[in-house]
């Protein structure tokens, strides 16, 4: 077995440039053996480009990356033998059955013939599709197809499984079940999982996450640690005059508030003790209030200055914002 220590993935200053646009601006990180590692960020943040470089599908402009102990540029084949891939877009043959798709994959990867069927049975059972093995993939629902792709990605017992937006376009119910499968199989197969998502709530399933924005990693830690790092609860109030409320909040309490999705939102330490003070001392009438513990949305906001939805609506703005932040060094 290749000696890789405890690192499944090592990335050092990886950079990808398209023309004069830097999609990935020199990222560095490590992923441990057996970890579920998530890449989180809005569309266009460079997640897919990074994953493609790690999967040997895109050549990095500069920098180095090792996956399962092999260099992604100089030992492309060795990397490919050791990774499983589930792409954002479907890559199944719809005219073949589930089992035929797996067999085809096993043949392409040179899996020992005697083991093809037992292994196929195992991975299909793992995603709950063994009973549908002879069903033509065209007749499968979106969730079933995605599960089949995951099963296929595992067919050759990879050491690292890459999932690029594994739950995109699926309904919440199916998304959750996919995640249950992913955690389960990670435990059973003892493999490393590297995935990207732009659903904040999904990142909670990861052991560690890296938040990516405009081609850079802005934060990297366990979801709990990141949330604790925000340090403040999020208070959202509804008022008749948001502008006045923001001004009054700054004047009376020294809190910097902003309008997010139509409501005045701000972070304070100890939200539950702050609200009574707000009611007794605040000059602007408040019609509603909510206090919440920090979520990953807050984490994202505290590092990038916007919600992930805003960032997706205007990637150009997100880019400018990052530039401003870099120049001013003003990270909140």
């Amino acid at each position: 077995m290749d000696v890789t220590g405890t690192r499944a993935i090592t990335v050092d200053n990886l950079l990808k440039r398209y023309g004069d646009f830097e999609a990935v601006k020199g990222v560095s990180f490590e992923v441990g053996q057996g970890e579920v590692f998530g890449f989180l960020g809005p569309n266009g943040a460079g997640k897919s480009t990074t994953i493609n470089m790690l999967c040997t599908l895109t050549r990095p402009t500069s920098g180095r990356a090792e996956v399962a102990g092999h260099d992604v540029v100089s030992a492309r084949d060795d990397v490919r033998r050791n990774i499983g891939l589930v792409f954002q877009d479907p890559t199944l043959d719809g005219y073949l059955t589930a089992l035929q798709n797996l067999r085809l994959h096993a043949e392409l990867y040179g899996v020992e013939s005697a083991l093809v069927l037992p292994r196929a049975k195992q991975v299909l059972q793992m995603v709950g599709l063994w009973d549908r093995r002879d069903g033509v993939v065209q007749t499968f629902s979106g969730g079933m197809r995605r599960r089949l792709e995951i099963a296929r990605g595992l067919m050759h017992s990879p050491r690292v499984l890459f999932l690029d937006e594994p739950t995109i376009g699926l309904d919440p119910q199916t998304r959750r079940s996919i995640w249950t499968y992913i955690r389960e199989l990670q435990e059973r197969e003892q493999i490393t999982i590297f995935m990207t998502t732009h659903y904040m709530d999904e990142a909670e399933w990861c052991d560690r996450i890296a938040i990516m924005d405009a081609g850079q990693i802005v934060a990297l830690d366990a979801p709990e640690t990141l949330k604790a790092g925000v340090g403040t609860d999020r208070v959202t109030i509804q008022t008749d005059d948001n502008e006045a409320a923001i001004a009054a909040l700054a004047a009376d309490f020294g809190v910097e508030a902003r309008i997010v999705e139509g409501h005045v939102t701000f972070g304070v330490a100890g939200g539950e003790t702050f609200v009574p003070r707000l009611f007794s001392e605040f000059s602007v009438p408040v019609t509603g209030v909510s206090v919440s513990r920090p979520t990953l949305d807050d984490v994202f906001m505290s590092y990038t200055g916007s919600t992930i939805r805003d960032a997706e609506e205007d990637p150009a703005k997100a880019r400018n914002r990052t530039m401003m932040r870099m120049m001013g060094g003003a990270r909140r």
């Binding site: 999967c55 040997t56 599908l57 084949d77 490919r80 033998r81 891939l85 792409f87 877009d89 479907p90 890559t91 199944l92 043959d93 719809g94 994959h105 392409l108 990867y109 040179g110």
Partner: peptide, 13 residues
């Protein structure tokens, strides 16, 4: 168009 080409392109062959 249906993405299957990618499955073949990434195989170690």
């Amino acid at each position: 168009e249906f993405g299957f080409l990618r499955e073949m392109m990434v195989a170690p062959v």
